Simulated scan of single mutants.
Amino acid sequence: MSITSGRHSSRVESSSTLRHAADEPGSDQKGDSDSGPLDMIRLTLSWLFLFVAVGLLAAVVVVPRLAGATPYTIMTSSMRPHMPPGTLVVARTADPAQVHTGDVITYQLRSGQADVVTHRVVGVGQDGRGERLFTTKGDNNPTTDPAPVRAVQVRGKVWYSVPYIGYLNQVITGRQHVIAVYVVAGLLLAYAVFMVLSSARDRRRARRERRRETA
């Protein structure tokens, strides 16, 4: 009887163990299936953030610097709706002969002074000496600007604009641009390396888990 009892007990324990072992992979698999999409979403959002940050850095600092262009910030509502306050505009030097009606230009209010305005050209003419003159107007203004703009006042023709990023350009000026490039580029590079290593680690961990389940 004791032998029969022992065999019976052994069978029960073995069956229980098998059931427990059969349950565990299922629960692990369910956990993996639950966390898989979340990990993918997290990874996608992380890379999206990285690309957006790199794009903004390029638009504000890198591209203007490489192209010899100058970034400016729209501070008033005169160019709404396409260029609201806070818009970053990047202007490239342009031959006055290549500036035409419909172009958006950045020009000095008075020749040789730092204050500039970005408005649209609505008319092109000449003075008595043959100098090219531009009539300008803010898209949101009811009337044209009071004085024509001389060619010597034109700082550039707007190349591209990025809404609301101009405030960042106001914060980092002069040598701070160069420092910002190295600092932000270093941080983004470190973040990219971290994401690559983290993704590779997660894949190795998933492969080990699959091998352990099939062993």
Rank of each mutant, 00 (worst) to 15 (best):
Q153H: 06
T70I: 03
P64K: 10
G128W: 04
S111F: 05
V152I: 12
P81Q: 11
V99W: 01
V90A: 12
G128T: 08
D115K: 00
A94P: 12
P64M: 09
L109I: 09
R129E: 14
R129D: 14
R155I: 02
R132M: 14
I74E: 02
M79D: 00
R155N: 09
A91K: 08
P71T: 07
R120A: 06
T93S: 08
T136A: 08
A97W: 01
G130D: 05
L66M: 11
R110D: 03
P85G: 03
L109T: 01
M79P: 02
G128F: 06
T101Q: 14
K157W: 02
G68S: 06
G130S: 06
S111Q: 12
T143Q: 11
A147F: 12
A147T: 13
T143A: 13
P142A: 09
T93Q: 08
Q126P: 02
I105L: 09
A151T: 07
Q153K: 06
P146H: 01
V152D: 15
E131F: 13
P71R: 09
S78M: 00
S78K: 00
V116N: 15
R129K: 12
G86S: 05
P71E: 07
A114L: 12
P85S: 09
T135Y: 03
V158T: 13
E131R: 14
V89Y: 07
V152M: 07
R92S: 15
T144C: 07
R150A: 14
N141W: 01
T70M: 04
V104H: 09
Q108A: 15
P96D: 04
T135D: 11
A94W: 10
S78Y: 00
Q153M: 13
T118N: 06
M79C: 08
P148D: 12
M83V: 00
A94C: 13
E131G: 08
P146K: 03
Q113H: 10
Q98A: 15
N141P: 03
R92K: 15
G68E: 04
A91L: 11
T106E: 03
T135E: 11
V149H: 01
V116I: 13
V149K: 01
D115N: 02
H100I: 04
D95V: 05
P71Q: 07
P146F: 01
Y107I: 03
P81T: 14
G86C: 05
G123H: 14
D139G: 04
R155F: 02
F134W: 11
Q113Y: 07
H119N: 07
P85N: 06
Y72E: 01
D145W: 00
Q113D: 11
I105R: 04
P64W: 06
P64S: 12
V124I: 12
K137G: 02
Y107G: 03
D103P: 13
G102L: 10
Q153G: 05
A114P: 06
S77K: 10
L109F: 05
R129A: 15
G128A: 14
I74S: 04
T73I: 08
T144I: 10
D127L: 09
L109P: 00
V158A: 08
R150H: 13
L66P: 05
S111K: 10
P85I: 02
A97Q: 14
N141Y: 01
T76M: 01
R92C: 12
T143R: 10
R65L: 10
A151Y: 08
V122T: 11
V104E: 09
T73Y: 07
L88K: 10
R110A: 10
V124L: 08
P85A: 10
V122C: 04
V154I: 15
